[in-house]
Structure formats: C-alpha cells, structure tokens
Amino acid sequence: MKIITFVKHVPSSGATPRIAVTKRGIEEEGLAYEANETDLYAIEEALYQRFVHQGTVTAVTIGPRRAQAALHVAYAKGVDHGIHVLTEGSHGTDTALNVAAAAEVVKKQGFDLIFTGIQADDDLQGLFGIALAEHLGIPVISAVTQVNVSADKKTAVVTRELGGGYKEEFEVDLPCLCTVQFGIRPVRYSSIMAIVKARSRKIESMSLEAMKIASRQASRMSIAELSYPENSGQCQMLDGAPAEAVRTLVANLVEKGVI
C-alpha cells in the first residue's frame, strides 16, 4: 500500500507568539516550532497500516526551510520518504495554494491512503485534509479514530467521532483520505538521538513557486488584525505566596457557598 501522511511545522505549544507590528502576522524570529500534534497521530496510524498491509509511508510538509524539522520527526518515527514543498514568504499561509501543491505531490507519488491531522494548532482551520480530498476527487472521512483496511485493500471500515462520545462507522472505498483525531493510536516517544540521526536522511525538496500552481480560490480570507485575547476581567488572580493564595481561594469558595 502507498500511504501518504502530512505533517505541519507549527509554533510550539509553550509560548505565546509575538504579534508583528503590522498586526497581520506573528514575529517568526526566536519562535520555537514543533510537528503539529495530531499529525504525530497520523504518522503513527500510517506506520501501523504499513505494518499490517506492507508498503511505504511518505511524509509531506509544506512550509519554509525550517519545516524540514517536521520531516526529521517523521523519519525518526519510521517513515520511508520525506518530501518538503518549500514556500517563501506569505505563500505558505494560503491554504488553497498549499492544497493545490499537495495534490500535485500526491498524484505524482500515487497513493491508496492519505492521512492528515484533524487540525493544525497554528491556524486551527481543520480544512486542509478535506479540501485536498475534494481537490483529488477522493472520499474523505474526518475525525477518524479507527481504520480497518480490508484484506483486498479495496475498502476500509473507518470509525469517526461525532460529538459527546458518539461515534459513527463508515465503509469507504480506497483510495481515500482520513483526517486523524487525537488518540487514534499511542504516539511513541522519539529520542533526541533518533531525531538527530534522522537529520541525515534524504529529503526530496521542491519549491512551491516553481510548481507554478495558481490558487483556484474564489473568495479571499485575510487577517485584518491580530490581538491578544483580553482577559474578560472577571478572573481574580490570586498572587502571592502559594500558602496565602490557597487560603484566599478556599475562603473565597466557602464564602460563595460552593464548598
């Protein structure tokens, strides 16, 4: 089976990015990055499917030069190939353009199964995988928590999440795309050593600009302004030494009558 899995390089979870002076983007300098969390689950699922059905797993990232680090993580976990679509400047933030580029790449590779994460932690869109499937004209199931490919590799039974703990099962024809939900399979820890070693693996690189892809998007979404969320002002922050803060907290809760 030919399996493709997407991995995006996103700012790390620990810090709040600094908003640029233009207020339309963030300061990239000094920011730490990591592989997007649900994409790690997608990689694990891809590797599991390879284990059961044989074949190859190709990881693809689209982004600036630094995004190669996401492929190092994928290599450390065990994928067979890494492809980097290099974007310069603001091109990297145009989802439609990225989707079109991704479609070119996967068509060239050939595929039976494509995995993406359910959403990227930076733009929180949850669009890329579904838009890619639409572009390719293949079926897509989102928020997937289980994939069972049939022995003849022509269909798969896929479980997706609905809300509130409900799930739904679908049968789907291959090739298809699944957007992978958190928890589909345990994410194994990758040691720093393994990631360092993965840096010497060959990454196939192509430039988005050279691919000459036109965005087919009819309407354009643009960021008018970024801001830091305001504290609604209702949260009483208990500063001071822990023991004192705790006393105030408990006294407060008793006063409110909640404990």
């Binding site: 709040t16 908003i19 963030i26 930076d122 929180l124 643009s222 970024l226 830091y228 969320p229």
Partner: peptide
Amino acid sequence: MYRGRVNAKVA
C-alpha cells in the same frame, strides 16, 4: 489562532 493564544479578526 495559535492554540487560542492570539485572536484574529478576519475579513
């Protein structure tokens, strides 16, 4: 955006 650490006003 960014895990809820930044808000975006989108047009």
